[in-house]
Design a protein around this nucleic acid. Structure first.
Lengths: 210, 210
DNA sequence: CTAACGTTTGTCCATTCGGTCAAATTTCAA
DNA sequence: TTGAAATTTGACCGAATGGACAAACGTTAG
């Protein structure tokens, strides 16, 4: 009667679960849920399919674990936005952190994008219970900054959306971005260029006009 | 020896192809390529699978037709951006048109997003041959505006990316947007709110600073 | 050493999916 | 009206896929 203690117990279980989740992130983010096969994941994880299914109940189980693990990391930058800090500094830091995540964790971004694009069939509850409250809270903070005249008067929700969109774009639409920029401008420097552009756009776009 | 004249000939062929493409747009945009089945498309189109395959060679063929048909519509707003016009007016119009497309043609946006997310396996040639040249051309226009001091000095490519990202976000991440905004703010008015926010952001963000 | 437990895999199964085919039905020009 | 061409469909096929299972293999505590 010890509830449902499903966490890994042995050393091997813990290690193998991590290997599987990493492999699954590769596959799911590149092919979407339905476009990915358990065989692909197993091969990427360096084990047989039945072996993989020894550690996870099934394909959905793996995906669910990934999504749950993802959202904490994903929302961290927004959580860090500090009501007590300087508004422009806080917003600039938020943009920079989100852009760094697009650069350093593109797989996570694409996994999430895939899920939302398909109508969030497996993620809707988390959006309502975790994402919405957090955004509401931070939107209120931005609204207060706005009312206090510390940044321009803008719609906080759409400001947040625009920051999500512009930063995640570099992960989700990476192929397009690199194709359009070409070999020269599309190298590693594209993230610095993007950072410069976005900083300027939001710095001037949110500055209080006199 | 009349080449490969594959266009529909009879009235029925023309009509049925349209019906199929519309149904396929529903299914593909909602489930992605691999997540969609020919049976689903056939049912949505109100016909049997073999009947559908009488009009198209196969699943890939339908998808290819959709993508080709899509890109013309999709790039039209950027094509309309006029070098001779007033820079701020042109950019504002471009943003408005892109946002209207996100509102009126969300299926097209999601179809495209799905394709790019998966690494554009079926679209890469079109990106290189159609999209890149067009963006290069318009980026040069914006760069000239920028150099002439008619808008702020910004990276033209990343400006275009940010406009794509912010506008398409309302189609591609619609579920998330509506969930976060909630029933009140997430109604039909969300596009007007977005338009107001984006106009202000880019108006001030691109204004020449003195 | 060895029994018990944890781990791994070959094999198999039911279902789904993209696609084929021949036969049946409908359309339409002469 | 009529017959040839266009259209539609039920039945079927091979491959892919998610998953089950029992047997085999490893590990380790006593």
């Amino acid at each position: 009667m010890e509830g449902s203690a499903k966490r890994p117990r042995t050393r091997i279980q813990s290690e193998k679960r991590d290997v599987i989740l990493d492999a699954a992130l590769d596959i799911f983010s590149a092919n979407g849920f339905r476009g990915s096969t358990v065989d692909q994941i197993a091969e990427a994880a360096g084990m047989s399919k039945p072996n993989l299914l020894y550690y996870f109940r099934g394909k959905e189980d793996i995906h669910e674990s990934l999504i749950k693990q993802l959202l904490d990391t994903w929302l961290a930058p927004l959580r860090e936005m500090d009501e007590q800090g300087d508004p422009m500094t806080e917003i600039r830091s938020y943009i920079r952190r989100k852009l760094e995540m697009a650069r350093d964790f593109p797989r996570e971004s694409r996994l999430f994008a895939n899920e939302i694009l398909q109508g969030a069939p497996r993620t809707m509850p988390i959006l309502e219970e975790e994402l919405k409250p957090l955004v509401d809270e931070k939107a209120a903070v931005i609204r207060d900054w706005s009312r206090a005249g510390r940044i321009a008067k803008v719609d906080p929700w759409h400001l947040i959306f625009s920051i999500w969109a512009t930063t995640q774009h570099y992960a989700d639409f990476d192929v397009q971005v690199r194709t359009v920029l070409g070999p020269d401008r599309g190298g590693d420097g594209r993230f610095e260029d993007a950072a410069r552009f976005l900083e300027q756009l939001y710095l001037d776009g949110l500055r209080v006009r006199n």
